[in-house]
Write a protein that binds this DNA or RNA. Sequence first.
DNA 1: TCAAAAGTGTTCCTGCTACACCCATGA
DNA 2: TCATGGGTGTAGCAGGAACACTTTTGA
Lengths: 227, 227
Amino acid sequence: MDFVPLGLATDLVILTVRDAALQVLLIRRGIAPYRGRWALPGGFVRENEDLEETARRELTEETGLATDRIHLEQIATYGAPRRDPRGRVVSVAYLALVPDLPTPVAGTDAESARWVPAPDLLADPARLAFDHHQILTEAVERARAKLEYSPLAAAFCPPEFTISELRTIYEAVWGTPLDPRNFHRKVTKTPGFVEPTATTTTRDGGRPAQLFRRGPATTLHPPMTRA
Amino acid sequence: MDFVPLGLATDLVILTVRDAALQVLLIRRGIAPYRGRWALPGGFVRENEDLEETARRELTEETGLATDRIHLEQIATYGAPRRDPRGRVVSVAYLALVPDLPTPVAGTDAESARWVPAPDLLADPARLAFDHHQILTEAVERARAKLEYSPLAAAFCPPEFTISELRTIYEAVWGTPLDPRNFHRKVTKTPGFVEPTATTTTRDGGRPAQLFRRGPATTLHPPMTRA
DNA sequence: TCAAAAGTGTTCCTGCTACACCCATGA
DNA sequence: TCATGGGTGTAGCAGGAACACTTTTGA
């Protein structure tokens, strides 16, 4: 067996929608290399640990979230020989979509972890450590694409949500305004996307809005369309 | 640095369309484990070798193809602790789309490498070694999805091709018949998908068909639609 | 009574499906 | 002249975009 010496790690792109904007969880590096710079959270795979298991462990460590209900998917693997100055480290990137947390970043101090608006980061390729700009770019594009044909936008929402709240997710992730009236019709008529609950809320002001839950669909027919 | 001992490999799902069917290149394993069983071609990543570089090297070794013009993309990484009985091996899977080769499998003997129809393999989860059935399944699904919104079907064709030949690709990959007349209109009217050449051919019989080249588009608007 | 958000109706237009029809070659 | 595949026209329908309009609350 050709065991070339290398480290295997996972990096996480943890996305949420806060203040009507798509935001990424970053940590500030306390040690070299890239000390003091912002980076994606991540860590090494342990012996007898599955890759997704590593990613879920990191996710819990960074957010304090019970990881069961969180959407987590693999994005891609980055293995350029010199991507880490310490030596050969191959990293499997994962994308996590989390609801806007009441407790922002539990378990870590505010100095070393924070939410940063995704557009700011995407606009500046030099702001993140390692090749994390590229990883972030591909992860965000994946998230944007997935909102089209999957009901994943609901992964950003609490268990019960209004159609407006769901629309806010789409607008934040895609960065485009959507017509509230057509959006409402489209979402409620797409089979399995959302299911009505018996209750309503006025938390968004104005006329009471009906609350919905995620439906059973895994793909949307027809898909939502970006402008 | 936590260097857990493990092997890093790439596995290749090499697809082509032959005899109007989607086919996969398999090799017969000469050594344990899974000796005598069919498996995806693959091999270990070398020191200072990029992951895609490994994949291209394997591709050339198995097919004898100059790898420059071949479409190659990463699918996913498989790292379950016991997926390889020899020890911990993490594998990065790649998808390659190649035109129907005049010389089928150059550089290897016919005993140990052959094209196998994809539907046969997909239908039987136990036929391939390791977790290769799962890898194949995800790779084929990726290829099917990509034909919808990218001009990648042309990667299965020679540099110049007729609309019918392109349609054959879609029918083989998707496993559904398409209306030749609507397909023709759709393809020729989608901006940047194909570009006409000045020449025609009668290699498919009947009225001479115009030959086309790949156009400059990277995504198709509107997308092709599966039945 | 007014502002604000929820939700419905309607019109126009694009794009897909189905299929009738004509075209250009080889046998 | 006929079989074979290439290619165009067109009618009908489904879904999206735009926007007028009604509903139900809190201030």
